[in-house]
Amino acid sequence: MPPTTNQAAPCQVEENVPQPVQRFAAQPTNGGGPDIAPHHVENNGWKQRKPLNAEATAKGRDTIARVSPILKRVCETGDFSVDTTRKALAELRPQVEQPYPDQRFLGFTITLDGGTCVLGDLKPGLVRIFLDGTNGEGSCYTPKTH
């Protein structure tokens, strides 16, 4: 379990919200592009996030406005435990993980209806929140790969 501290520390919150897409652009099919291994694109296509329309972006912004002060308070307590973060965001049913158990760093994923994902992480002094679409498998959570 990572160390905690009882001292409140200021935390900065960074929010990354992309502009909504108006329509989807066709991908070039002329065969041009980088020199990559055969089937690289199709093997890794599931990792590509889908763009968000205006409605999904608005829903994500509303959620970010709701969770940002909550996560800032969690960060400022110095308690970077999975349980504390999960409890703070309980009504949104987040997936919270600590990829590096020896470090004070957490990642979280919140899945909203309609393919909107609120993703982010917390570490001492910083909360980062990102808005994105689902991956190619229709999930907000992308597991670690080798």
Rank of each mutant, 00 (worst) to 15 (best):
P2A: 15
T5N: 13
N6C: 11
A8N: 15
C11V: 03
Q12C: 01
E14A: 14
N16F: 08
V17H: 08
Q19F: 08
R23F: 02
F24N: 08
A25F: 07
Q27H: 10
N30V: 05
G31D: 08
G32H: 12
P34H: 09
D35K: 14
D35Y: 10
D35N: 15
I36Q: 10
H39W: 09
H40C: 11
E42Q: 13
G45S: 09
K47T: 09
Q48P: 02
R49M: 14
P51F: 01
P51Y: 00
A54K: 12
E55T: 11
E55H: 09
A58N: 11
A58T: 12
K59V: 00
G60D: 10
G60V: 10
D62H: 08
D62P: 00
T63D: 01
I64K: 05
A65D: 12
R66C: 00
V67P: 02
V67I: 15
P69R: 03
L71R: 03
L71Y: 04
K72G: 01
K72Y: 02
C75V: 07
E76T: 09
G78P: 12
D79N: 15
D79L: 05
F80Y: 13
S81L: 06
S81A: 07
V82E: 07
T84I: 07
T85N: 02
T85Y: 02
R86C: 07
K87Y: 01
L89D: 04
L89K: 08
E91T: 14
E91I: 02
E91Q: 14
R93G: 04
E97A: 13
P99R: 14
P101H: 08
F105C: 02
L106V: 05
I110L: 11
T111S: 15
D113A: 15
G115L: 13
G115P: 13
G115T: 07
T116Y: 10
C117T: 02
C117A: 00
V118H: 03
D121M: 03
L122C: 06
L122F: 00
K123A: 11
P124H: 09
P124S: 10
G125A: 07
V127Y: 04
V127T: 10
R128D: 02
I129T: 06
L131A: 02
D132R: 12
T134C: 00
N135S: 05
G136V: 06
G136L: 05
E137C: 01
S139F: 04
T145Y: 14
